[in-house]
Computed example of a mutant assay.
Amino acid sequence: MSAPERIPPRGVTPHGEAAELLTEGELTVRGRIREASNAALFCTVAHDGREASCIYKPVAGERPLWDFPEGTLAEREVATYELSEATGWGLVPPTVLRDGPYGEGMCQLWIDPVPDGELLALVDGEEPEPGWKAIGFAEVGDGRTALLVHADDERLRRLAVLDAVINNADRKGGHLLPAAGDRLYGIDHGVTFNVENKLRTLLWGWAGEPLTPDAVEVLKGLKEALGDTGALGARLAELITGAELKATRARIEALLTSGRHPEPSGEWPPIPWPPV
């Protein structure tokens, strides 16, 4: 018997094929990722001679949050993937909602990160060097502070736009995965799509700057896709509440109206803790 075919990340195999495998395949738990705040299980999924590694987060393992409806984090992860695919940027690994060994949950293609230079750094001085964007100052011990910066990278900039649309409340450095083919993925999107402004991210370096023409065109496409007759709107309506969908449309409209990356509101801590 030949060995099963493994499914690599996007760029080698279409996302649709990986999503089909995640949905239809037999899920086998191999271990638990203990660093995760909610139950996160490392698995393999196999179907029709193909196999891939994946992460499975059962709804039953979600910790209740005061500001999100209970048992909805998996659906928010899937909604983020669906919206990311609509941008054409492919910033989120294939993610589906399915039944598994511990009930319904989110199942996402596992991404093996590759060395890709530094995306985040702590540096001395008051201003970032060329090629970097300032986030803010951080304590580094012994009463010292350093400037926290992120790379002035187009992939990160696109992710910053996506985060603004989905109202991501937890964009940490550890949620950034450089992958083969010069790709960058964002993961862990359970705390998204809240009606209230909860944007917390490390990617504030473009705050207040004009959106790129590419981002504007993508936002226009999302606005249409989330309209009353848009397929994306119908799909998200199955995953988030009507009020959350309405708020998503409003965030897109606000971005198009301002033409700029959002700035911290001052109503919510702008940077997640811990930041990495």
Score class of each variant (00 low, 15 high):
residue 1 M to C: 10
residue 1 M to R: 14
residue 1 M to F: 10
residue 3 A to Y: 08
residue 3 A to R: 12
residue 8 P to L: 03
residue 12 V to C: 05
residue 13 T to A: 15
residue 15 H to I: 05
residue 17 E to W: 04
residue 18 A to Y: 00
residue 28 T to P: 00
residue 28 T to N: 03
residue 29 V to A: 08
residue 30 R to M: 14
residue 32 R to E: 10
residue 32 R to W: 00
residue 37 S to A: 12
residue 39 A to P: 02
residue 40 A to M: 06
residue 40 A to T: 15
residue 41 L to A: 06
residue 44 T to Q: 12
residue 51 E to T: 12
residue 52 A to R: 01
residue 58 P to C: 11
residue 65 L to W: 02
residue 65 L to V: 00
residue 70 E to K: 14
residue 72 T to W: 02
residue 76 R to M: 10
residue 76 R to Y: 07
residue 79 A to Y: 01
residue 80 T to G: 07
residue 82 E to P: 01
residue 85 E to I: 04
residue 88 G to N: 12
residue 89 W to G: 00
residue 90 G to W: 00
residue 90 G to R: 06
residue 90 G to I: 00
residue 92 V to F: 00
residue 93 P to L: 04
residue 101 P to K: 13
residue 104 E to R: 15
residue 104 E to K: 15
residue 106 M to P: 02
residue 106 M to L: 15
residue 109 L to M: 09
residue 110 W to I: 05
residue 111 I to R: 02
residue 112 D to V: 14
residue 114 V to H: 11
residue 117 G to Q: 11
residue 120 L to S: 06
residue 123 V to K: 08
residue 125 G to Q: 07
residue 126 E to Y: 04
residue 130 P to R: 15
residue 131 G to A: 14
residue 131 G to T: 14
residue 132 W to N: 03
residue 134 A to Q: 09
residue 134 A to S: 13
residue 139 E to V: 01
residue 141 G to V: 04
residue 142 D to H: 15
residue 144 R to Y: 06
residue 145 T to Y: 10
residue 146 A to N: 07
residue 153 D to F: 00
residue 160 A to S: 13
residue 161 V to N: 06
residue 162 L to R: 03
residue 164 A to Q: 05
residue 165 V to G: 01
residue 166 I to Y: 01
residue 167 N to Q: 09
residue 167 N to D: 11
residue 168 N to Y: 08
residue 171 R to A: 05
residue 174 G to C: 03
residue 175 H to G: 02
residue 175 H to Y: 09
residue 182 D to M: 03
residue 187 I to S: 00
residue 187 I to Y: 01
residue 188 D to H: 08
residue 188 D to E: 07
residue 189 H to G: 03
residue 190 G to I: 09
residue 193 F to G: 02
residue 194 N to S: 15
residue 202 L to R: 05
residue 203 L to D: 08
residue 206 W to V: 02
residue 206 W to H: 05
residue 210 P to H: 10
residue 211 L to I: 11
residue 212 T to N: 07
residue 214 D to T: 10
residue 214 D to G: 05
residue 216 V to M: 12
residue 217 E to I: 00
residue 222 L to E: 06
residue 222 L to G: 01
residue 222 L to K: 00
residue 225 A to T: 06
residue 225 A to K: 04
residue 227 G to M: 07
residue 231 A to S: 14
residue 233 G to Q: 09
residue 235 R to T: 13
residue 239 L to V: 10
residue 245 L to S: 04
residue 249 R to C: 06
residue 250 A to H: 14
residue 250 A to M: 07
residue 251 R to S: 09
residue 253 E to N: 10
residue 258 S to C: 04
residue 258 S to P: 00
residue 258 S to T: 11
residue 262 P to C: 11
residue 265 S to P: 03
residue 270 P to F: 06
